[in-house]
């Protein structure tokens, strides 16, 4: 028998599955290396876009290049972490179509918890690396003294920023119960949200500010924390101190996500798949 985590405790079923997925991915050697490289390339080109713009201008939306590094780093770190943990929820439509979602129903755990822990995509590590590098570089280049306030702010931003994106993935997955080829539709707010998060929200016209500030609150994942960290004022309607309310924004996204998830699974069980 392979090494079993000691049975007992509420976490061990999830740990068992995750550990097995990590082991499974280690066995796909060459494909994995190439995937890592591809992921790295994606992360680098995303940054290259920002870099090319700053080749032409000094300031964008009130932020200079070093500040943009922090913005880019925080937003991409949060998104990549969420993608690592929850990104595979986008395979839900495949399970539904193949009828294999039922296997999850036959196990004594909540459905969402099973799906979230059913996979962990180690390829995302390269993008996490790129984001982390950008963040650290930006923080070092900016002249900020790092005391407890700054460190707490960073921690809140990273943890709850990840939670916001993870919540968006859950919203997107829930909608798959209703849409047939719906994953492309939800990309508009998951990947769109990620793209919006790495821009200074100040550049958006008012309707978009409201959208990405409050409705799909990706401004909380990086822009507001960056402002608060660097002591900059925010644009009208989005003051810098809102950064401390990032957990609230995450709570809002997860509330909507859980409601949509319940709605979606109910639809699946009533509709018959």
């Amino acid at each position: 028998m392979s090494g079993l985590p000691l049975a007992g405790g509420r976490v061990s079923p999830y740990r068992a599955v995750l550990a097995s997925r990590v082991r499974a991915q280690r066995s796909y050697r060459t494909g994995f290396a190439l995937d890592l490289f591809g992921s790295l390339l994606i992360g680098v080109t995303e940054f290259a876009e920002v870099w090319v713009i700053f080749h032409n201008v000094e300031v964008l939306g009130g932020l200079d290049f070093h500040a943009i590094l922090v913005l880019f780093g925080l937003s991409n770190l949060a998104f990549s972490l969420a993608d690592l943990l929850v990104g595979h929820l986008d395979t839900l439509p495949t399970y539904v179509r193949a009828g294999t979602l039922d296997a999850f129903y036959l196990r004594p755990q909540p459905l969402l918890a099973q799906l979230v822990t059913s996979e962990v995509d180690l390829r995302r590590i390269s993008r996490i690396g790129v984001a982390g590098t950008a963040l650290v570089s930006g923080l070092v280049l900016e002249d900020v003294s790092y005391g407890p306030r700054e460190l707490t702010l960073l921690a809140i931003a990273i943890v709850f920023g990840t939670a916001i994106f993870a919540g968006l993935f859950v919203c997107a997955a829930s909608l798959q119960f209703f849409l047939i080829n719906g994953s492309e539709l939800t990309n508009s707010f998951t990947y769109g949200g990620s793209y919006a998060a790495q821009q200074p929200t100040a550049i958006f016209p008012r309707p978009l500010k409201l959208l990405f500030g409050y409705l799909i609150p990706v401004a909380f994942t990086a822009y507001l924390p960056t402002l608060a960290l660097l002591g900059l004022p925010g644009p009208a309607g989005l003051p810098a101190w809102l950064a401390w309310l990032t957990p609230v924004a995450a709570g809002w996204v997860w509330l909507v996500g859980m409601l949509l998830w319940r709605w979606g699974t109910r639809h699946y069980q009533v509709g018959g798949g």
């Binding site: 713009i53 032409n56 201008v57 964008l60 939306g61 849409l179 047939i180 080829n181 719906g182 492309e184 539709l185 990309n187 508009s188 707010f189 990947y191 769109g192 793209y195 919006a196 821009q199 200074p200 100040a202 550049i203 958006f204 016209p205 978009l208």
Partner: peptide, 25 residues
Amino acid sequence: RLAMVAGLATNVVFGFIRAAILFAA
């Protein structure tokens, strides 16, 4: 058809963001 609508939605969202970025630039 649905995929086309989805594609259009993504096009538009990214279009808004990119236009905002380049205007700011």
